[in-house]
């Protein structure tokens, strides 16, 4: 575990932001931190980045209690981006890199690599003001990762990127993960969770309501539902499953969603189907994170 959050409580004057929250983030994972607005994600991130301290509970970083020396091992891209508008891109990145403990020479050579890799060499002497929003986002991303932190915290990293740059960013994130960096990834966009994350934690009303490996969480939310593609008529009562929905498609072929009755094995249901219709495809329905999110969050209310 690179990060182990244990029983953390944080209260602000008016409300409880985190109520005995525990989350473990395995090393080398892309870990999704999910939850509706105001659930406590930002409060948790601010505790990990040591912007604020928890009222109680502890945070372990790589096994040791989180302390000031870990600041340089963490890269943080906040949801609300910002740079010094009047400063030049190169100067600014040098400054931010040095604040993360890099030496001048080190920062310079690493930044040069990034400028070449992202093909933005001619930005070095431009004031940030002259850059487009997307260019500023790229600059900020470099600022977050240049010191090669062991833990990268990205809060809604894709907002403000066009599809091409978003793809490029995605590739960069995966490449960084493959180099061994752990990424804590906070987002509302469930399709990117499915695409990128290895594990998740869902926070709602200051509590962790769901956490685990991506596959395992999805399995937990399977409802024993299947999608069948067939030709023929599927009418009346069936003994092994319920018909949930049906849609027709071209060439007489139809698609139906079925839910198996309890303790019915797949082959039993398939056997019953074969008696009535010609089955072309039979597939388990894996719940999307969108469905899981909505189910969990609305349930809690």
């Amino acid at each position: 575990m690179i990060l182990s959050i244990q029983d953390v409580v944080k209260t602000y004057a008016e409300h409880i932001a985190l109520d005995h929250v525990s989350v473990d983030v395995p090393k080398g994972h892309i870990f999704g931190l999910l939850g509706p607005n105001g659930a406590g994600k930002t409060s948790l991130i601010r505790i990990i980045t040591q912007i604020t301290a928890p009222d109680s509970g502890r945070v372990l970083f790589d096994g040791a209690p989180l302390s000031e020396r870990h600041v340089n091992d963490i890269g943080y891209l906040p949801e609300e981006r910002g740079l010094y508008k009047k400063m030049k891109v190169g100067e600014q990145l040098m400054y931010l890199a040095q604040l993360k403990g890099m030496s001048r020479a080190e920062a310079q050579s690493k930044l040069k690599d990034w400028f070449i890799r992202l093909d933005i060499k001619d930005w070095w002497n431009k004031p940030v003001d002259d850059l487009s929003k997307g260019m500023q986002q790229k600059t900020q991303f470099i600022a977050t990762v240049v010191h090669e932190p062991a833990l990268l915290i990205l809060d809604e990293p894709f907002s403000g990127f066009d599809p091409i740059n978003a793809n490029m960013l995605k590739d960069e994130i995966l490449a960084i993960r493959d180099r061994g960096t752990t990424i804590l990834f906070s987002t509302h966009r469930m399709e990117s969770v499915e695409e990128l994350c290895d594990g998740i934690a869902l926070i709602n009303h200051a509590n962790v309501v769901l956490t685990g490996e991506k596959k395992e969480v999805q399995n937990r939310f399977k409802k024993n539902e299947f999608e069948v593609s067939f030709v023929g008529e599927l009418l009346g009562e069936t003994s092994s499953f319920d018909l949930l929905g049906m849609e027709s498609s071209q060439d007489n072929r139809r698609k139906a969603r079925i839910k198996l009755h309890e303790k019915v094995r797949i082959n039993e249901a398939l056997g019953e189907l074969i008696q009535h219709v010609d089955v072309y495809a039979f597939q388990e329905i894996i719940p999307s994170f969108n469905d899981i999110f909505i189910e969990v969050v609305s349930q809690k209310k």
């Binding site: 912007i51 000031e68 600041v71 340089n72 943080y76 910002g82 010094y84 508008k85 900020q140």
Partner: peptide, 17 residues
Amino acid sequence: IEEKSSRIIEVIISSVK
């Protein structure tokens, strides 16, 4: 005010106190 309104503040204070 400049640091706060340009929102760079959060990046900076994740590096320094």
